[in-house]
Design a protein around this nucleic acid. Sequence first.
DNA 1: CAAATATGTAACAATAATAGTTACATATCA
DNA 2: TGATATGTAACTATTATTGTTACATATTTG
Lengths: 143, 143
Amino acid sequence: MGINSRFAVAVHILALLALEDRPLSSKYIAGSVNTNPVVIRRILSTLSKAGLIETQLGVDGGSTLARPAEKISLLEVYNVSEQGHLFALHSNQPNPLCPCGRNIQPTLLGVFKKAEAALESTLAEATIAEVVQDIVAQLQSQS
Amino acid sequence: MGINSRFAVAVHILALLALEDRPLSSKYIAGSVNTNPVVIRRILSTLSKAGLIETQLGVDGGSTLARPAEKISLLEVYNVSEQGHLFALHSNQPNPLCPCGRNIQPTLLGVFKKAEAALESTLAEATIAEVVQDIVAQLQSQS
DNA sequence: CAAATATGTAACAATAATAGTTACATATCA
DNA sequence: TGATATGTAACTATTATTGTTACATATTTG
């Protein structure tokens, strides 16, 4: 499985920044995510380089959204979080002397590309603001 | 990324069985895929349990498609090859005392489910027969 | 200026998944 | 009976992920 939890944590971080609407430190965020602050800082660093957040050093510093949550799509967050591709080709080059081995990879790449595009188009339609709305709706049903 | 090549190899195997249209041994298939026969046998075993191929022991034995290639969708192959989910939630449970931490996971699951469904619907539309057609078309442009 | 607080990143360990390999029990066919 | 196949256990090497400690550097406040 092409699984890692960085995408989930990145969405969590951005939703938390949107909800609290003030600079949050990596230590504070780590308390919500339940992990080590360095894990958070690694993700914050990539979010910052991608222009999704801004960070402020020093006392009472921390990170804030660089843009309104309505303007941050989950596809952007996904692209920052997942490097490489969802699907893998063969780990060794197939046999070039075999008609199938020689031609299977371009065919597979076409299939992979189409499937990934479909996945990404659904992520492009969702935003951090919608994630926050969903969380707020759950909170209201809990009170 | 948590990527594995089993899906690529499974499609390769099934396309090869369709192309050659005779029982192929794991050793022969391994020659085309360029890997160890045991790696192939592990995948053949799951394809067999899923009813996609039939295997014959003994001299001149090997595997054949259990159904015409037109009736084997790539989604079936994908479901056999990839267990678990494409996306992962947090590796530790988020803080239940935080409003965001308490509610982010159901929200994320909704996003993941939608994205995976989109990906899977593209795989449902493609078949092993189409993969074979694509390979044959490439072969013709090579002669 | 000095103390407190943050980030950013290097370095390392623990864990898990993947892929490759050897070995062998079992089944089938000629 | 011998040749050939599968199916699977067991082990290794490699890699990715996550968590952790440590520390240089930047910023704000008193």
